[in-house]
């Protein structure tokens, strides 16, 4: 599925499912995608534009779900989540209404749009809600698989899609129920990435291997995930590095630390993400420039990993 954006892969697969299942409804908050045009054209009875009104979009989607539909709320990620956070709390967490919230632009995906369009806190916020699963998607094969999987979910699901067209990581969809996948095995420690940063983790692993440091790579894409399988997969790893395009407070790295703590594992962990004191980014000219501002360029990361004792 090379050269296909995650959102087009997602909507293409969902379109295929929706043609067979009238319960699948797209609720867009005035957000498009080339693949969504096909959905709108062929399935107008299953497409709703809620307008630039995410609160109404979330509520209408939840009302549809109460009547047995499988609604997908679609918007740019910060608006699909933080604009409606208290509604997600009441409708999807407290009332446990199964809506799939599809947010585009994970991390710095909308790189030059500035901090209103970056989303760097969503994992922390949404994983605090019982009944809400997060799918932090890392490639288009996974995006398509998550689209189909979402139709059968009994609880709410937040799908964070990258805006960029990224290289494929998977030949076939990974085991979504497990929530993570080993992309490169190792006994000398792990680089654990999520979303966009999983791609960086793979490049770093290759680079460091050339320097004699052999680290494995895991893609942690669902939260919560199968913790027992995760702990088993870690093996006797002497150390872990987590990489996320997200503030460090409460993000994926925090979740890994909590998991180790819950299982009584004292493995040293270095978390790479956005330091809180650096705040938001007003750097333009591409994602790499933005990440360099947080000392998360590949050179910075390689050096920090080599030097971390």
């Amino acid at each position: 599925m090379n050269n296909v954006s995650q959102r087009d892969a997602f909507w293409t697969r969902l379109y295929e499912v929706a043609r067979q299942d009238r319960r699948v409804i797209a609720v867009a908050a005035d957000m498009g995608a080339p693949a969504l045009d096909q959905f709108r054209r062929d399935l107008p009875g299953q497409f709703v534009n809620a307008g630039i009104a995410e609160q109404n979009g979330l509520l209408v989607a939840a009302g549809l779900a109460l009547e047995g539909k499988h609604p997908f709320l679609y918007a740019i990620a910060p608006f699909a989540t933080f604009r409606v956070l208290e509604l997600i709390r009441v409708e999807n967490s407290i009332m446990d209404i199964p809506v799939t919230i599809v947010g585009v632009g994970a991390g710095f995906g909308y790189e030059d749009s500035g901090p209103t369009h970056h989303i760097l806190e969503d994992i922390a916020a949404l994983r605090a809600f019982p009944h809400v699963t997060i799918h932090s998607v890392s490639d288009s094969t996974m995006a398509a698989a998550v689209a189909e999987h979402s139709c059968g979910m009994k609880h709410a699901n937040y799908v964070r899609l990258d805006r960029a067209v990224l290289p494929e990581l998977y030949q076939a969809a990974p085991d979504l129920a497990k929530g993570f996948a080993v992309l490169r095995p190792s006994k000398a420690g792990w680089l654990i990435g999520t979303g966009y940063m999983t791609h960086k983790a793979l490049r770093l692993a290759n680079r460091l291997a050339g320097e004699g440091l052999d680290l494995g790579v895991m893609d942690l894409f669902a939260m919560p995930f199968d913790e027992k399988a995760f702990v088993a997969a870690l093996g006797k790893a002497p150390r872990l590095f987590t990489l996320e395009e997200h503030f460090l407070a409460g993000g994926m790295g925090s979740l890994v630390l909590e998991t180790l703590n819950r299982h009584g594992l004292a493995i040293p962990v270095k978390r790479f993400g956005l330091e809180m004191d650096k705040g938001y980014s007003y750097v333009y000219g591409g994602r790499d420039r933005i990440l360099a501002g947080y000392e998360l360029s590949e050179d910075d990361l390689a050096k920090a990993i080599r030097n971390w004792k």
């Binding site: 609160q55 509520l59 209408v60 109460l66 009547e67 047995g68 509604l87 009441v90």
Partner: peptide
């Protein structure tokens, strides 16, 4: 919602009306 006959849990305002619209839309679709 745990009370028989109550359709939703509601305490925070500005929620039930939108849910009702979604339910009405579902009825229309079906």
């Amino acid at each position: 919602k745990s009370v028989p006959g109550a359709e939703i849990t509601c305490g925070s305002l500005g929620h039930g009306f939108g849910l009702a619209a979604g339910m009405a839309l579902a009825a229309r679709m079906d």
